[in-house]
């Protein structure tokens, strides 16, 4: 199977050791540690994982369900590469005057293409991700936000990706 650069890099990295705050038993830990990368694509994938880990198929399914419900896992499934799906993404930032922060937040968040928006402790104090599935739309949205807010938007699309991913060991 061909692997992307980031995948290769990920498998060569060590996992971060998790600590504190959560109560997991051995089966939970085995599932979290084993399933961050290669969930099988086959007729009975949970049964295969179960047999690799010495668990029952219904245990694996039940544990994943519970870990998702408890918020220990934020997702389970395929992680897609947005640009390779034909989408376009950028990271943008604005230096927002303090007294206008709430208004500007509303104006920026009103765009459905704004996926994430964070306040950060810097002169550039608002950082947001714009994602569209129509190539060429990003520039339009950035210029709309500039017109609506009267503030300069710094558009910082990625020029090269070196790594995406992170493994945790619990």
């Amino acid at each position: 199977m061909a692997k992307t650069f980031s995948y290769t890099a990920q498998s060569s990295k060590s996992a971060l050791k998790a600590a504190g705050g959560i109560d997991l038993d051995e089966a939970d830990r085995a599932i979290i540690n084993a399933l961050q990368g290669d969930f099988p694509v086959c007729e009975h994938p949970y049964a295969q994982v179960a047999s690799d880990l010495g668990l029952e198929e219904r245990q694996v399914i039940g544990r994943i369900e519970k870990l998702l419900a408890d918020g220990v896992l934020s997702r389970f499934g395929p992680l897609y590469h947005a640009e390779k799906m034909g989408g376009e993404l950028t990271l943008a930032a604005i230096a927002v005057p303090e007294d206008r922060f709430d208004d500007v937040t509303d104006l920026v968040n009103a765009h459905e293409e704004v996926a994430h928006n964070y306040e950060r402790d810097d002169d550039l104090n608002m950082w947001f991700v714009v994602a569209t599935d129509q190539p060429g739309r990003i520039a339009e949205i950035i210029s709309d936000i500039e017109n609506e807010t009267g503030l300069a938007v710094h558009n910082m699309p990625k020029l090269e990706e070196f790594f995406v991913g992170l493994r945790f060991e619990v």
């Binding site: 980031s6 979290i32 399933l35 961050q36 290669d38 590469h81």
Partner: peptide
């Protein structure tokens, strides 16, 4: 590479 990987994504806040 359209699918980066298939698996679980731990919530890093919950893991400390």
């Amino acid at each position: 590479g359209v699918i980066r990987r298939i698996g679980v994504v731990p919530n890093h806040y919950k893991l400390g």
